[in-house]
Amino acid sequence: MSENNPNISIVVPLYNEEESLPELLAWIERVMAENRFSYEVIFVDDGSNDRSWEVIRSLHDANPCVRAIRFRRNYGKSAGLYCGFEAARGDVVITMDADLQDSPDEIPELYRMVTEEGYDLVSGWKKRRFDPVGKTLPSKFFNGTARLASGIKLHDFNCGLKAYR
Rank of each mutant, 00 (worst) to 15 (best):
G80D: 08
F37P: 01
P108G: 02
Y39S: 14
H60W: 03
A98K: 01
L100P: 00
N4A: 15
V55I: 15
F71Q: 08
N7K: 11
N16I: 05
L110N: 04
S9H: 03
I107Q: 04
E106G: 02
V55P: 05
R30D: 06
A26N: 14
M96A: 08
S48I: 05
S58C: 07
W53F: 10
L154S: 09
F37L: 14
E117N: 04
V92A: 03
R36F: 04
R67G: 08
I8E: 00
L154F: 07
H60F: 00
E18P: 00
V44N: 07
L148Y: 12
V55H: 05
G144T: 08
V31K: 07
H155Y: 09
F157K: 11
P104I: 12
T95N: 06
M1V: 13
R30A: 13
K162V: 11
E23N: 05
A98W: 04
P104Y: 02
N35W: 05
T95P: 02
A146H: 00
L14K: 04
F85V: 04
P13G: 06
E116M: 12
G80H: 03
E29V: 06
V93F: 06
N5D: 14
W53Y: 15
R89L: 09
N49W: 10
E109Y: 02
A33V: 01
M32G: 13
F37E: 03
E109G: 01
S103R: 13
R51G: 08
S9C: 08
C65T: 04
D99E: 14
R70F: 04
E117F: 07
F130H: 11
C159I: 00
D50F: 03
S48E: 10
G124K: 02
L81F: 08
D50H: 10
R67I: 00
A149G: 01
R36I: 06
C159F: 03
C65F: 04
R128H: 11
W27C: 03
N5W: 10
R129F: 01
V31D: 06
R73Q: 10
E117I: 00
T115C: 14
D99F: 06
F157R: 08
C159Q: 06
P108I: 13
